[in-house]
Amino acid sequence: MADVLTEIVQPDDLKKFEKIYHEQLYKNDVTPKAQFEYAWCLVRSKYPTDIQKGIILLEELYKTHEEGQRDYLYFLAIGNARLKQYTKALNYVRSFLVIEPGNQQVITLQQTIKKRMEKEGLVGMAMAGGVVLAVGAIVGVGMAIASKVKS
């Protein structure tokens, strides 16, 4: 089922933005825009090595391009969640929510990641410090419960 953690970039889109990035790289003049667009496609790849590459590009942007930091945090969370590095993903989400506590899009991402962990049996981690529920009771119940267990 498609959602922000499972939809996959079209290969020709990935290639298109890769080409632009590499052309700029060759001239030693990479714009944040080209790097961001390429990274955004990479973290939506079905290949973990691409996602990892996207994460590195986003980390670099995060350090060097202050203007887009909230975007980079968001996609760093997505990239890490897709690699099943949930703890890291949730840390990025939390850093974001420190700056913008009420951001519904990011709260939804947090819920999506936690639901993912529950499905994969990582409930104990998702629930750390929160309410403990039986796995069976959680799976498939969706938003209503996810929002209750929001830490």
Binding site: A2, D3, V4, E7, W40, R70, D71, Y74, F75, E100, G102, N103, Q104, Q105, T108
Partner: peptide, 25 residues
């Protein structure tokens, strides 16, 4: 756009909605 989506899926209005990052689902 995001408020319309939210109204349709959650039946709630978001009075102070930040700009969407990339896409929402």
């Amino acid at each position: 756009k995001s408020c319309l989506l939210h109204q349709f899926t959650e039946k709630k209005f978001m009075a102070d909605c930040p700009h969407t990052i990339g896409v929402e689902f």
